[in-house]
């Protein structure tokens, strides 16, 4: 079970959170002007990388705030946690098993 540091409440067990999937998939500004292919891409397609992925999480049993985190889909190492609206630079690759797990 992951230990996730809520940007407000601090480290909490994964069971207090819900995962909202891949982050930074903005809803089209003008959906009506979005063609079918682009809209289908928004609706159905996800990157599903092997390695670092940015995800949206909500501290649903706590402060109910949504935030982003960056996590290795291989090691589950959490490399960044940041608030909605922020978009920090990419982390160094955390896929190496030699990297220490746990919290950033």
């Amino acid at each position: 079970m992951l230990l996730i540091t809520c940007p407000w409440c601090g480290p909490r067990d994964e069971i207090e959170f819900t995962c909202g999937g891949e982050a930074h998939r903005a809803r089209p500004q003008d959906p009506a002007a979005t063609d079918d292919a682009a809209f289908a891409d928004f609706l159905f397609m996800r990157t599903n990388p092997k390695g670092l992925q940015r995800e949206r999480w909500c501290h649903s049993q706590g402060c109910r705030r949504w935030f982003n985190l960056e996590r290795s889909t291989i090691t589950h190492e959490i490399t960044r946690i940041y608030k909605m609206g922020e978009q920090p630079e990419a982390s160094a690759d955390a896929t190496s098993p030699a990297r220490q797990g746990g919290q950033p």
Partner: peptide
Amino acid sequence: CAQTVLARTS
């Protein structure tokens, strides 16, 4: 104070 989980409820 804390909002958390106790047994099977928040």
